[in-house]
Every structure is written in structure tokens, then in C-alpha cells.
């Protein structure tokens, strides 16, 4: 039996997973929508991976989780590594592109920039307070224009004269877009303008003050949009590298981290049969009223979090 490692990246919009061997080769991969239900998404993900995966030849001995639902899914999968998405993305990308200097990452609800020197992260930034210029914004604007988000990129490429759209804030961008639409700007120009707005917004906010050096790797769900890729290379005047697996690099990174971890534990693919449930309880021991999330596996409490102080700590009874 050869050893294999599972990496799972559960974001706000999509859930990604890969299984790799000891040489970081991807043996199985899956990508699906989170649909507001991280537990359900992870279950579907695991069964999809199980179908692709030669369980007679390989054995998964390490699991890593990342993404905004990393803690919850880490508990459910019994992960040996739970890592933030910035570190995970950096590890995943440098494993494929050791020379990379700048990583642009735009996901469903957040965007980040990671600056790398000699293979290690030396600086990064992540959007705060606002989700302007992320995947969710593009999806909602596509809907407004009666398009599928997948059609967005190719349509943008048809434009010779991108419409100027305010890039500062989603709300401004949206009303700007509506006005320009109503005064007769062509749809492909508006779409190309939106792609440009996403890029300017990103570089002005997240990339502010960072020295962008090539090679530049662009990843995250939005990197699938060819219009945004073009806008990035127009603005930075640099080549933009997009890996065919650009949406999976966070999952890949955390799988590598699981591989590097010394502790090994056999992973059981049969989690579909297990009932996972979360329950929120209000602590009520002070006016903070912390909402404590309890995670149950087949009725047993396996983990809890959300308390700000020791008063709200819920003790886990040892399972016999």
C-alpha cells in the first residue's frame, strides 16, 4: 500500500479537494459548490474523491483542511493539519512554481496578495471589511446582465473599448454599471469594464503598497475568468501565469502540509454514513452571550468553539 494525503479547502462559495501521493502528484480532485452547507459539501466531496481514487493501491494517512470552514471540516475529518488559507495557498503554489514572486488570489468572498522571496512568504495582505471585486460580486453582476459567469471572460475579450466602471466599492460599481447600461454602452464593453474594475479595485486595495514582481501566479475561482486575466496583464504589463488547477492550489497546499506532518492516521472514506450535527447554544454566563457551536458526531459531542473566555468552555466527555 502506498501512502496518500488528502487536502480539503472549504470556501464560502466552493469546496475543493485533492488527494496526492508522496511526490505531490494529484491522484484525485474534486470541485463543487458549498451551497451554504459546509458539512454536506464535504461529504459530497469525499464520496466524489473516493470514486476517483484507487483505494486498493493507496491509503490516505494524512488529512489537512483550509478555507473559511477549516475548523469545522477539520473536526469532521479528524484532520492532522488545520491551516489558514494564506499559508496553504503559498505552499501549494510554490510547490508548482518555485520561482514565483507574487500570488494574486481572488476567491468567492475574499482576495489576497502574497509576496514571496526565495520560496517563502515575506508579505501578504487580505481584503478587510468589504468583498468588493471578488467572485461573488462578478456572479451577481453577471446575473444582472443575464449572463452565466462562465460566459463572462470570452465576452470581455470581444470588447475593444472597455467601459469605465467605478472600482472603489461594490455599491458604487453597481450603480455605475446600471447607468452605463441604460445609456447604451455595449454589453461586451460593460463586461470588459467590470473585469478591469475588479483588477483596479484589487490592486488599489489589497495590492496597495506592495511591490509586484514577476513571475506572477493568479489563482482562486476568479482566475478561471479569461477577461480578468487579460485585465491583470494589461494593467501590470506582465505575463500572468494561471495553472490549470488554479482553483485547487489551496487544497494542494494543505495536503502537502499534512504530508509533512509526522503524525499519521488512517482516513476512513465512509463519512457519508456518519451523522454530523452542529448546534449553537448561547452561553448566557455574561452579557457577551457568546454563541458556542457544538459539533456532534452520531450524537456525541466531539468539539466546541465560539466562547471568548473560560466560563463558556464546554468540556468534551471522553468517549468510551
Amino acid at each position: 500500500m502506498k501512502k496518500a494525503y488528502l487536502g480539503v479547502d472549504v470556501g464560502s462559495i466552493s469546496t475543493k479537494g485533492v488527494i496526492i501521493d508522496k511526490n505531490n502528484k494529484i491522484l484525485a480532485e474534486a470541485y463543487l459548490w458549498t451551497e451554504g452547507n459546509p458539512i454536506g459539501a464535504v461529504k459530497r466531496l469525499i464520496s466524489e474523491l473516493a470514486n476517483q481514487f484507487e483505494q486498493k493501491k493507496y491509503k490516505v494517512v494524512g488529512v489537512g483542511t483550509t478555507g473559511s470552514a477549516r475548523k469545522l471540516t477539520g473536526t469532521i475529518l479528524g484532520a492532522n493539519v488545520v491551516k489558514n488559507e494564506i499559508t496553504a495557498h503559498a505552499i501549494g503554489t510554490t510547490s508548482l512554481y518555485p520561482e514565483v514572486r507574487t500570488i494574486f488570489e481572488i476567491g468567492g468572498q475574499d482576495s489576497k496578495i502574497i509576496i514571496i522571496e526565495d520560496g517563502i512568504v515575506v508579505d501578504y495582505a487580505m481584503n478587510t471589511l468589504c468583498a468588493a471585486g471578488t467572485g461573488a460580486f462578478l456572479t451577481s453582476q453577471a446575473r444582472r446582465l443575464g449572463l452565466e459567469v462562465e460566459e463572462f471572460g470570452p465576452l470581455a475579450l470581444q470588447s475593444n473599448n472597455p467601459t469605465n466602471i467605478a472600482a472603489r466599492c461594490t455599491v458604487f460599481a453597481e450603480s455605475d454599471l446600471v447607468h452605463k447600461m441604460q445609456i447604451g454602452h455595449r454589453r461586451e464593453d460593460i463586461v470588459a469594464g467590470l473585469c478591469k474594475a475588479v483588477v483596479t479595485n484589487y490592486l488599489n486595495n489589497v495590492g496597495k503598497g506592495k511591490k509586484i514582481k514577476s513571475p506572477i501566479v493568479f489563482q482562486g475561482g476568479v482566475s478561471k475568468n479569461i477577461g480578468v486575466i487579460k485585465a491583470f496583464s494589461d494593467v501590470t504589463k506582465e505575463e500572468i501565469i494561471v495553472d490549470p488547477n488554479s482553483h485547487l492550489l489551496g487544497a494542494l497546499g494543505v495536503a502537502i502540509l499534512a504530508k509533512n506532518k509526522k503524525s499519521e492516521k488512517d482516513f476512513d472514506f465512509d463519512i457519508n454514513e456518519i451523522e454530523f450535527e452542529t448546534r449553537g447554544v448561547e452561553c448566557k454566563k455574561c452579557a457577551n452571550n457568546c454563541e458556542i457551536i457544538c459539533v456532534f458526531k452520531d450524537g456525541y459531542l466531539i468539539d466546541s468553539w465560539g466562547n471568548r473566555c473560560e466560563n463558556g468552555a464546554i468540556k468534551i466527555k471522553e468517549q468510551s
Partner: peptide, 12 residues
């Protein structure tokens, strides 16, 4: 959100 950024900062 804060925890994610602090963790990444620490790793870095």
C-alpha cells in the same frame, strides 16, 4: 477573519 489573518501572519 481576524484569526485567519493573525495565523497567517504568525506562519509568515
Amino acid at each position: 477573519g481576524i484569526k485567519t489573518r493573525l495565523e497567517a501572519f504568525y506562519d509568515m
